[in-house]
């Protein structure tokens, strides 16, 4: 039986609906949440990602702004810009679009973002709080994965979650979130990677399989247990076999084959992507609520 397709757009819509009420309350107190994205250079994928976020912000009634810096901006100029935003009372959330050009120190730049405005949870102090189980901002992609699971009725509670890919923006924070002893988490979690020998033997153990390797069709049907929940975080551009010369977006999962075996699966596009941007908005609203309480 083909799998239930988890509709990320619908879930994102639902989340934004809930956020709108909170935004209205803030506005009634004279606070309009604002997210500022810093973009260095002209990377087309980054530009399109930020455009998606801006749309999600507008749909929720929050403000958004993109600060564009030249490809050759210095570390000092970048940090000065971040510091200025840290102090700006009209700005509640700051994201720094990655990757940065090679001459810039990503870690130092991320550590400059005020932990109170770090809505993508990249400042090490927020990552530490995440792992410790303290109140923090969850990075939007893993946060979105957790929301997708819980809201589609597949809570990770008591389940074995296998995460393929251990990046600092997806795999690691997701592991830290899902092992916490709380509702919507409480999972047994394995992290592995594309280099894992006999990856299939590991992935076949999963009740919930999260693919975050950045490699098209890396997860094939033989790697998935019958009845597993499959969450695809991958976004890969491949040549469209139906339209030679054109490109299309696919995930890390061989969707057509895996959907025949899985109990539920997220599509690409329309799965984790829309929820990721909704979570970024959610974090911005939370930041505005926290900051305006002070």
């Amino acid at each position: 039986m083909p799998a239930e397709i988890i509709d990320g757009r619908k879930i994102a819509e639902q989340i934004r609906g809930e956020l709108k009420e909170r935004v209205e309350k803030l506005k009634a107190r004279g606070v309009t949440p604002k997210l500022v994205a810093i973009l260095v250079g002209e990377d087309p994928a980054s530009i399109s990602y930020i455009r998606g976020i801006a749309k999600s912000c507008e749909a929720t009634g929050i403000l958004t702004e993109t600060v564009r810096l030249a490809e050759n901006v210095s570390q000092q100029e970048l940090e000065a810009k971040i510091t200025q935003l840290n102090r700006d009372p009209t700005c509640h959330g700051i994201i720094l679009q990655l990757p940065l050009p090679k001459h810039l120190d990503t870690l130092r730049a991320e550590s400059t973002i005020s932990p109170d405005k770090d809505v993508d949870g990249t400042n090490p102090i927020n990552m530490g709080k995440l792992l410790l189980g303290e109140d923090t901002f969850y990075p939007s992609t893993p946060y979105g994965v957790q929301e997708l699971l819980v809201r589609s009725g597949h809570s990770p509670d008591g389940k074995h979650v296998v995460i393929c890919g251990r990046s600092n923006i997806v795999g690691k924070p997701l592991m830290g979130m899902l092992v916490q002893k709380r509702k919507g988490a409480n999972a047994t979690v394995t992290v592995c990677h594309t280099g894992t020998r006999d990856l299939a033997a590991v992935t076949r153990q999963a009740d919930i399989l999260v693919a975050a390797m950045g490699k098209a069709k890396a997860i094939t049907a033989d790697m998935v247990k019958e009845g597993a929940i499959v969450i695809d975080v991958g976004v890969n551009q491949i040549e469209d076999p139906q339209n030679p010369g054109k490109f299309k977006l696919v995930g890390d999962v061989d969707f057509e084959a895996v959907k025949e075996k899985a109990k539920a699966i997220t599509p690409v596009p329309g799965g984790t992507g829309p929820v990721t941007s909704a979570m970024l908005v959610a974090n911005t609203v939370k930041a505005a609520e926290r900051l305006s309480r002070l």
């Binding site: 870690l107 400042n123 090490p124 102090i125 927020n126 990552m127 530490g128 709080k129 995440l130 792992l131 410790l132 303290e134 600092n168 690691k172 830290g176």
Partner: peptide, 13 residues
């Protein structure tokens, strides 16, 4: 135990 150390360690720093 400081969150900054916990976070840096988790990030591989």
């Amino acid at each position: 135990f400081h969150p900054v150390n916990v976070g840096k360690a988790w990030l591989g720093q």
